[in-house]
Design a binder for these strands. Structure first.
Lengths: 133, 133
DNA sequence: TTCAAACACTACTTAAAGGTAGAATTTAAA
DNA sequence: TTTAAATTCTACCTTTAAGTAGTGTTTGAA
């Protein structure tokens, strides 16, 4: 039970920027070094976050990454969505094809409950929550 | 958020045996066909379950797999342990090295709560629970 | 005592996730 | 207007999970 590496990095990157001043600019080199994330792998993730509207980038000399949106409106779930983590996995836990409300697998109800708890974390935690600690 | 394929298959296999009579014998061919799990992949998983003491096997003609233990004492968690699913992952959700009780990452507390809920499912559901449905 | 039907073992192949390399593009300062 | 510092694009390499192949071993019935 874990988030994949890309998702983990994505959250750490965004958290790093938010905690050090969202409107400041951070270069890929800087972020990569501070968070010990492989440079090339990181820039790949950055592109996803930029495309997803989480982070804004400026190219060229004096370029870098920052966060422009109102912090409060960006949720952890948005970050995960940007890097394609499948949050709303509807498939049966044990891969049982015919698992639905009518004909449930043995873990269905319990699993759904726990899964909802996870999803709520991602839906209810915003970037703003990351500053206060 | 999901169990890996091996774990999913393992639970489905054990569930299948339990629901069709735990003390009966089931051949690999039979199980593989009924559950649409690739034969060779399945037998590999079976070996893990046998080694883990979940399932007992007998070789040769008239051989097969069955469950001898008291159903009530075998938990889903035991099955997952047998196939090496890492249930008690202690690492930080976002891969933050220095995440512990003293210096927590921003998701720590919430995550732990949700994770505990998942773990409890696996610890508190026994094979016996699988028969009643 | 043979032999077919079963599980078990070792090694390989394929697909997906994680990670790397290098060149192209953009931009602002000198 | 050149150049260095930055992001972006495309393609590749590596590692791990998923799945396959073939052979060996065991066992009970004919």
């Amino acid at each position: 039970m874990k988030l994949n590496t890309t998702s983990q990095y994505a959250i750490r990157i965004v958290t790093f920027i938010v905690q050090n001043g969202a409107n400041n600019k951070y270069t890929a080199k800087d972020i990569s070094e501070k968070l010990s994330i492989p440079y090339k792998y990181m820039t790949k993730i950055m592109t996803l976050l930029v495309d997803g509207g989480i982070i804004s980038s400026s190219r060229g000399r004096e370029g870098g990454y920052s966060i422009e949106k109102e912090l409060a409106i960006i949720k952890i779930g948005d970050i995960l969505e940007a890097v394609k983590e499948n949050l709303h996995q509807e498939k049966c836990v044990i891969g049982n094809g015919s698992c639905n409300k009518r004909e449930k697998c043995i873990l269905h109800d319990k699993w759904i409950t726990a899964k909802k708890a996870m999803q709520e974390i991602f839906e209810n935690t915003t970037l703003e929550d990351m500053i206060i600690r």
